[in-house]
Amino acid sequence: MKKYFVIACAATLLGGCSVLDAINPFSSSAPKMAELPSIKPTADARVVWRERVGKGDLYVFSPAVVGNSVYAAGVGGTVARIDDGKLVWKIDAGMPLSGGVGADEQLVVVGSLKGDVLAFNSADGKLVWKARATAEVLAPPAIGDGLVVVRSGDNRLAAFDTTDGKRKWIYQRPIPALSVRSTGAPIIDGKLVMAGFPGGKLIAVSPNNGAAVWEGAVALPKGVTELDRVADITSPPVISGRYICAVAYQGRVACFELGSGQQVWARDMSSALGLAIDGPTLFVTDDKGAVHALDLASGASLWKQDKLMTRKVSAPTVLRGFVVVADVEGVVHFLNREDGSFATRVKTDGSPVRAPIRSLRSSVVVQTIDGGVFAIEAE
């Protein structure tokens, strides 16, 4: 994932931010991308269907899956619903978009660079309501318990009523002088809304009023310079049973008790990409492109697949015995869940995959920067 670092001045939080491409670790001075290793496929994979929405450009648009429906969007304003490979509707949101997609059975929600939050009817794509966040919307909104929760570029959480878009509450906290531009969505689970923040903090707040319930330290900033001290959570946390886990850039991967926020374990690992849980195993893609399998209860290493180093590998997802990741050339890799070995791979449109890969029953859904949406099946 291409990282954009943002200077966030505490005194001018809403206005004085700038992008520092010079310290982008995937610039032309970055290590040469590894060649794809030859493999002997042990599984068959195929593209089940494909569709096109607008390009992503510099933004990360994550497809949303609800039942058999896939919702996808692009920077030009296109929002689409695809059911079993058939285009149900495609609309123009009427403005450029920068974040999305969040969806449930009733609503499809996206956001804009100006902080607009747009909610459409999932059945026909008609606008239901429009609201405003406090800054640009870069992450997919979360929907649940009658709320749409939006994370804005100033690292605030805002909750809106799903019926009319009325704002219910805002959560904000102090942030460090330097932070990573985050596309990590909040998540809603039962009585908590959870999100990762700059400084390595995982926060749980009440969906009723936005008050903090608990705070966990995934990473502890360290070093002499502000750049050394960047330790931000830029991907969504994941939940399984009583555990909630998160990973931080220049920090650690850690798991906590969901109810109390008490840390169960932590180990050093840097990732701005994300993680996935399947049964007793936690899967993480680190910043160098290696995919790790860790024991969920203890954090012990089970295996590591490092043959995709420097290929800007996506966050993992798990499907039917495979750990699935995609890379900068749009290649989707299926790894054997038990040992991380390559099972098979599938090419898409040749452009990078930055968005999280979604599971769709027996398939995975991948969205590329060029706007391709692919459902891929392997067995």
Rank of each mutant, 00 (worst) to 15 (best):
P140D: 07
A139N: 05
A119V: 10
R361F: 10
S69G: 06
G153R: 07
G94R: 03
K90S: 15
V364F: 02
W49Y: 05
P37A: 04
R52S: 04
K307W: 07
L302F: 00
N121M: 13
L107T: 07
E136R: 12
I357S: 10
V213N: 03
L282A: 02
D349M: 09
P236V: 04
G279A: 06
Q263A: 08
R337A: 14
A158M: 11
H292I: 02
G74Q: 12
S260Q: 13
G196C: 04
P280W: 00
W129R: 02
I7L: 10
K312R: 14
P356A: 11
I277N: 08
P31C: 07
G196W: 11
S362Q: 15
S260G: 14
I233M: 04
G144E: 06
E257M: 07
L282R: 01
L87Y: 05
G190M: 06
G190V: 01
K304F: 00
P176W: 00
E377W: 10
A293K: 00
K3S: 09
I82Y: 08
T134Y: 07
E329K: 14
I143R: 14
N68K: 14
V331F: 13
A254E: 13
Q305Y: 02
A103T: 05
L20Q: 08
A177W: 07
A217Y: 00
I357E: 02
D349S: 08
D327G: 13
L157K: 08
G196M: 08
D92M: 04
T225D: 13
V328H: 14
V48P: 02
I188W: 02
S341F: 03
W129N: 04
M95F: 12
G102P: 08
A375V: 04
V253Y: 05
D21L: 10
H333A: 05
S182C: 10
L273N: 10
Q262W: 10
V331Y: 14
G321A: 14
M95V: 12
E329D: 15
T344S: 15
G56L: 07
L192N: 06
A22R: 04
A30S: 15
V75K: 15
C255K: 10
L258F: 11
I369A: 14
L113K: 13
V108K: 03
R132M: 15
G216W: 04
L107P: 05
K304H: 00
F283Q: 03
T162M: 13
P37E: 12
F283D: 09
A139K: 06
R267G: 06
V48C: 06
M194H: 00
A133M: 05
G165V: 00
G99S: 08
L113D: 11
V148A: 08
F120G: 13
W129Q: 09
V373G: 07
G372M: 06
A131W: 06
R156S: 12
A231V: 08
T317C: 12
V218Q: 13
G100N: 11
L58S: 13
P31Q: 09
L127W: 05
V205I: 15
E379R: 15
V137L: 10
I170D: 14
G330L: 14
A135V: 01
G196D: 09
A43P: 04
I376Q: 01
A103Q: 08
R229M: 07
T134P: 03
I187L: 14
V353Y: 07
A10S: 11
